[in-house]
């Protein structure tokens, strides 16, 4: 990580909802679609779009199955997803630190 912390930020991860999905998947190990939808207060369609972006980037895997007659979709963080999340959090902390020391109000 060199230069300004915003340099090298991954646009796939540096997005509020996708950062939320990765955070939850990291903490939960495995998370169900409906939990993400309810917790992040998203529509099913919008959540599906974000999941598609993350899956295409290789940051999560999506497994579909059934629990009885009910269809369930489980999301799991990949190793690359865990690394991307850790990098994003580190850059955010560094950015806050940089902004605080430069006296510039963030946001």
């Amino acid at each position: 990580m060199s230069g300004h912390p915003v340099n090298g930020m991954d646009d796939v991860v540096h997005q509020r909802v996708r950062l939320g999905i990765l955070t939850i998947a990291h903490e939960a190990r495995q998370v169900e679609f409906s939990y993400l939808r309810d917790t992040l207060e998203l529509t099913a369609g919008n959540l599906s779009q974000h999941l598609g972006v993350l899956e295409s980037a290789g940051l999560i895997t999506i497994d579909k199955g059934y629990a009885g007659k009910r269809a369930r979709t489980w999301i799991t963080l990949t190793k690359a997803g865990g690394a991307a999340l850790a990098d994003e959090i580190a850059r955010l902390k560094l950015l806050i630190n940089t902004l605080e020391h430069s006296g510039t109000p963030p946001g």
């Binding site: 509020r16 909802v17 950062l19 939850i24 207060e41 955010l92 806050i96 902004l99 963030p106 946001g107």
Partner: peptide
């Protein structure tokens, strides 16, 4: 239910505090 209502604003502090809140809820 909105499309991205839960996480508005690009403020890095808000992003981090939002992540902490999600971790707490999980």
């Amino acid at each position: 239910m909105t499309t991205e209502s839960a996480y508005s604003g690009d403020d890095p502090r808000r992003l981090l505090s939002g992540s902490r809140d999600l971790i707490r809820r999980v």
